[in-house]
Structures are given as C-alpha cells and as structure tokens.
Design a binder for these strands. Structure first.
Length: 720
DNA sequence: CATGTAGGG
C-alpha cells in the first residue's frame, strides 16, 4: 500500500503550518510543533468529552463507542486512558485495526502527539514489523496479530484494555476476535473471584489439557487455575450509526456517541434506472468536468478490467474534445496495480488540470485520496461469496449496502463540501441492505476453525459468534480439516499435526503441504511454493501490454505447471538480488530489482511479500524441527508431494478442454493466467476454484491420476 | 479458446 495512505479519523498538520522562519533554532521549532499538536488535539470533537468518556470506561467493563469520521477516537482515546492510569502495573492498552497501514500510521502519529520515540511508550505490531517493546503502553496492532498472540497467551494477560477499532467493517478477524474477547473478559473477571478457566459458548474448556499437548512448553504456565487475572476492559469502536448489534452481543453494553467532523455532501440520484452504468459514469464524469467548479473526481468501479476500459473510453473522448476541455487527467487505482503507479493518485494534477480517479473499493477504506470533491457511485461492488456444498468461492458484482454507499459519498467531504452522484434512482437506495453481510458468512472457515480449536474451543457449532456462519459452512470446514489430518475422529486438534498446522500463519492446506514436504524431502521447494501462493498474484498483465507480458512470463514457465514456474521466478529473483547487492550495495540493488521486476512484468510488491512470508515461515519450520531438504532436480518427487498435499483439489480432463473437479464433480476451466492454459494435461491439482464469468481453476500442476490413489487412499480408494 | 473486489497472519 502506498505509504502516503492515511487512515481514519485524525488530522495531519499541513506543510504550510511548518515554521517559515529559517533562523529559528531547533528548540523553538520543536516547541512550536508541540504547541501546534496540542492545539490540534484540543480542537478535535472528542477533546470536549474526555472526562465523560473516561468516566464511562471506568464504570463499564464493556463500552461501545460510536465515533463518526473525524472525531479523533482512534488517536485520542488511548491517550485519555493512559493519562487516567489504565496502565498500572505495566499493563498495556491494545488497539486493533483491520489493516496494517492504519496500525502503523496511527501509532506514528500518536507517538508524535505524546512526544515519545516510536516503540517506547507508543508502538505498533503488525506481521513482519514489530516496533513494540517492554516499555510500550499504547500498542496499535492488526486484529489478526492479536489473535495470533492469543495462541501464546490465551488470557491476553498483558492487556488492561483492548480497543477493537473499525468493528463495523466486520472482517473475519474482527468477528473472531470479538468472540474471543468476550470469553477472555469473562474468564478474567471470574478468575479474580473464583479462579475459573476460559469459558467458550456453553461449554467449559479444559485449556490445560489441550495446551499440554503443545510441545512448546513456553506458552502455557499461566493457565494454572490458581493464577489471578486483573479484569479486562473492552471498548468496541464503530463508525456506523447502528450500535445495537454490538450492544446486544455484549449483553446490553452501553453505547455512547461521539460527534464527527465532516463537511456536508450533497447527494444526487438519477431520475431513472440506468441501463448502462459505465456509459452513465462516463457522461457524469464529463458533466462534472465541464460544468462544475474545481475539485477532483472519484469514480467507484468494480474491477481492473472495467477501470482499464473506462480509462480508454475517457481518453478517446478527450482527444476528440476542444483543447480547453482536455485538461482531465485519468488515474486508475486498484490493489493489483504496481505500487509506483498507485502513488500517482496522491500527486496533485498539473496546474489547470482536474484529476479523475477510477478506483475499486480500495478507495472506500484502505486508501484515502486528498482533493476529492466529487464522487460518482454506480452502486455496485464485486464481492466474494462462498458455497460450502461446492467448496467454491465466487466473485460477483452485487449492489452495495446503504452503509457502503454512505462511506463512498463521505469521500467527497473530507476537505470541504462535496457532491456525490449515485447512478441509480433514489427509491433504489431505500431497497439496499443496511449493511454489508459480515465476511465470516461469506468465506471458507477452515482457517478460523483451526485457530479456534488451537485456542481451546472444542465446540465450534456452539461458539458464541456475533453472527453465526451457517451450519453447513462450519461442517464443511471441519470435514476439510479432518481430511487434512488436523482433527482427530473426536474432532479434536491432532497431535502433532493439528498443533503444528495451527502455529503456522498460513492457510491450513499450505501448512499441511509443508509438513508433508519434509517427508518428501522437498521442503525447500514447498516453502517457496506456499510463500508464492500466499502472496497476491505475482505476474502483472496490463491490458495494453498483454503480448509483452506473456513473452516475459514464458521465460519462466515450466511445462509441468504454475507451481514450478513460481519456484523459477522466486529463484531468479533471489539470484538477481544476491548478485546485485554484492555488485552495487543494498540500496542500489533495490532499484535494480524493481527494474528487473518491471521488465519481467512481475509485481515487485507481491514478490517482496512472498519473500517476507518465506523468511517468517522458514523460521517457524526450523523451530518445529522439520527437515529442510531440497529435492534438487527431482521435480517428480515435488509434484508427487503437491498431489499428496492438494489431493482435495484434483481435476481430470473432459472433452473440449473442460475439466471435472473430482471432489465436487463440477465442470471447470483452466484460468487463462495459468501456464497450462493451452497445454490441457490429463490430470491436474489446483489451489483455487473461483467462479467469475466462468468456473476457473488457478495455480495448477500436472500430475498422474494414479498418484491420487497411492498418496491419498483415505480419500480416493473408497470412491474408486 | 481469453483473466484477479478488498483485507489479514
């Protein structure tokens, strides 16, 4: 993500506020800046209710805080609590965020506000990047990371307060975390008086027994029942106006409201439903450009392809326009776009030009773009859904929810009054769902369930989720985990495989692949494979350079499939990096590396991410004592290991280039991004089955059908 | 023959 991305509800000093007097000494500048910060803090809407808020937090063990955009809740509340001595005995205030950038940027800001060095009293902790220390009292973190911490410290004993921020987004991690925190809070208040263990749902869990199985030894001494825990304060922060869901879930917890600071945004609707929303968007862009005052335009579209095609249409029309009205700069942004191109949205348009930003929902929450005065919202979004019966995920274009539409229009009112053009009639807005369906009801649950099992939750169906996933989805994932050997016949975490799998921050099927690979003597290769599979797609193919990107990919491609191709890319990258850093030093080699990626149509952000994952998982498997062997040139053994690992995802060729997925019987096609797209081997294993325009399998390798029966007899022997 | 909303560990 671009580093310029800011997040949430805080105000950054603008550059013009910096001292203009070059003669002033540093000390003065410093105290100037302190003054400025103090003034900004005082002017935040939340500053006037500090005392009342702290009182409410003292009185209530759980508090819901509804804070509108711009209230300052994310940066200020932790500081209020620190000032009110909520960190006695070296305890920590933890604040979770759904996204890494948010945790990092907010922590930096708060450290500055407090006048401390980042990593001292104020720090952050996200995957691959931990600035917290033993002196840290205010710790910003991703909610996924706090869940991982809970595996090592189930009572989260170092925290006196945990604040779950952006709870309205209802990400999987946030939902699971809230369920966990509810139990932890109960257990800690009980332990203070009665010394009871963790209680999940209806069932008391014997954490001691389950954790004894874990061979780590380091993590579980505190589970002794005589240990006393200080009570835990919980604060759930949400930007949505509807606090009722949270309040009901947390046993009628009190909710308070904090004013925000947003500029008004006028909303416009179309008179009639638009038959072609892309055409309507195009017309609206030019109406604003030719008829409205200065200010940039943000258009919400559903995906890369749509963005690229509208970009072409706008530019075509511009070349036909009179000179004076040509001053429109089109800038696309979506997650798969290489970072340096993403950064273009933050650059101001050249003088006299207006920017029009074509964005996916990345611009709803993840990236905040300055200068937006007009928002065009066709009211659609591409969303994931999951069919447990078929084991298949789908990406479909669906109407946004009301809250999503509000979030989008709000993007026009961050710096001044704005306008939002919704490309549908007003009565359609009334028919939208109030809020987006929580993600936990739309995804494969294997990972969530493995986590919960490792936390000692045995009865997943009885677990007190804020919103329960369907029974079918839970059972399907339990089944998958059983077939992977992570669960025993009694549905408990298996020892050691299940515990090992839960420790690895990977999809369960990838964790299993690593464990098997150590037996197939190809762990080195499999480690690269799962790192590459865990990152976003490595190759980047822009529409206008399709042929070039295909040629580049060919130089790495293996006739055996995508997995070996990925290994070749990874090794080429590592070799290039090693060579260049000897030749020209680390700093310069970075630049050469980015050039290398660009020439090869590889997304350097994705590849670096894969390297980070590789390094982290390498550490884990070494700690687990798995044997880190390489199969050398014997890729047959590696492919057999892929078959043994991904046997649930096998497909055989049908007439006319179609394939039949063996587990569900669905007829699928090979995704055009695969190196096997034209090869059409008899039998393949794959990693993803997604329905978009068609049913596609992605990331494939050619295997021998007979291997399945040999290597996964528990699954295939019965059927055949 | 023809392609990946957004996040997280």
């Amino acid at each position: 993500m671009p580093s310029a991305a800011s997040h949430g509800n805080h105000h950054y000093p603008n550059s013009s506020s910096k001292s203009s007097n070059a003669n002033r000494n540093r000390q003065n500048q410093f105290s100037d800046r302190r003054q400025k910060i103090l003034q900004q803090r005082k002017s935040l809407p939340i500053a006037s209710v500090e005392k009342r808020l702290v009182d409410e937090i003292r009185k209530n063990d759980i508090l819901i805080i509804v804070g509108e955009t711009g209230s300052g809740k994310t940066t200020q509340i932790p500081q209020f609590l620190l000032g009110a001595k909520f960190c006695h005995d070296g305890k920590v205030i933890g604040i979770t965020q759904p996204r890494r950038v948010a945790a990092v940027t907010v922590a930096k800001r708060v450290a500055e506000e407090c006048g401390v060095e980042l990593g001292q009293e104020v720090g952050y902790s996200v995957r691959f990047d931990d600035t917290s220390s033993s002196s840290t009292r205010i710790k910003y973190m991703t909610d996924g990371l706090l869940l991982r911490e809970a595996l090592l410290d189930p009572y989260l004993s170092k925290y006196s307060v945990i604040i779950v921020d952006e709870a309205h987004e209802r990400t999987v991690q946030t939902d699971v975390l809230m369920g966990l925190l509810k139990s932890v809070q109960l257990a800690r208040s009980n332990s203070a008086s009665h010394g009871q263990g963790l209680n999940f749902g209806n069932k008391s869990v014997n954490s001691v027994t389950s954790s004894e199985k874990e061979n780590s030894g380091q993590s579980n001494s505190f589970l002794k029942k005589e240990h006393q825990y200080a009570p835990l304060k919980l604060i759930i922060m949400s930007a949505s106006l509807d606090a009722r869901t949270f309040s009901e879930y947390f046993c009628g917890a009190k909710a308070v409201h904090v004013q925000g600071r947003q500029f008004p945004v006028d909303i416009f609707y179309t008179r009639h439903a638009e038959p072609d929303y892309l055409d309507a968007a195009l017309i609206t862009i030019f109406q604003i450009h030719l008829g409205e005052g200065p200010g940039d335009i943000l258009v919400f579209l559903t995906g890369q392809e749509e963005i690229e095609s509208i970009e072409r249409l706008i530019n075509e029309r511009l070349t036909k326009s009179p000179q004076e009205s040509q001053k429109l700069l089109v800038v696309p942004i979506f997650a798969a776009l290489p970072a340096e191109q993403q950064l273009r949205v933050f650059a101001p348009a050249p003088s006299g030009f207006r920017k029009v930003i074509l964005a996916t929902n990345i611009a709803e929450t993840s990236v905040t773009i300055p200068g937006i005065k007009y928002v065009i919202d066709p009211g659609l979004v591409k969303a994931r859904s999951y069919d447990p019966a078929k084991g298949m995920e789908s990406l479909n274009v669906v109407p946004t929810s009301k809250s999503q539409a509000l979030q989008r229009s709000g993007r026009a009112g961050r710096e001044g009054p704005g306008k939002c053009f919704r490309l549908y009639p007003e009565n359609e807005f009334g028919k939208l769902e109030d809020s987006t369906k929580p993600e936990i009801k739309r995804c494969n649950l294997s990972n969530v369930i493995l986590q919960l099992k490792a936390l000692g939750v045995d009865d997943i169906l009885g677990f007190d989720f804020i919103e329960k996933p369907s029974r079918a989805a839970i059972i399907k994932s339990l089944e998958q985990l059983f077939l992977l050997g992570a669960l025993t016949d009694e549905c408990r975490l298996s020892d050691p495989v299940g515990y090992q799998m839960a420790r690895l921050p990977l999809d369960p099927v990838y964790s299993k692949a690593l464990i098997l690979a150590s037996q197939f003597n190809c762990l080195e290769e499999m480690l690269i494979t799962v790192a590459m599979l865990s990152a976003e797609s490595i190759f980047y193919a822009p529409r206008d350079k399709l042929d070039e990107s295909r040629t580049a990919m060919k130089s790495f491609s293996s006739p055996e499939g995508d997995h070996i191709t990925m290994i070749k890319v990874y090794r080429a990258y590592s070799e290039f990096l090693e060579k260049k850093s000897i030749e020209m030093g680390k700093a310069k080699s970075e630049k050469a590396l980015r050039k290398w990626c660009k020439e090869n149509f590889i997304n350097s952000r994705s590849l670096r991410h894969a390297c980070d994952i590789h390094r982290q998982i390498l550490g884990h498997v070494q700690q687990m004592g798995l044997s880190l062997a390489s199969c050398g040139d014997d890729m047959l053994e590696y492919r057999r290991c892929l078959a043994a690992s991904f046997f649930l995802n096998a497909a055989v060729k049908q007439p006319e280039g179609m394939y039949r997925a063996l587990a569900s019987g669905q007829v699928v096609q090979i995704h055009p991004s695969s190196v096997l797209f034209r090869q059409k081997p008899e039998c393949v294993i794959f990693n993803e089955l997604v329905q978009t325009n068609n049913k596609y399998v992605r990331n494939l390798t050619r295997i021998d059908y007979l291997w399945l029966m040999e290597l996964a007899p528990q699954y295939y022997a019965v059927q055949n």
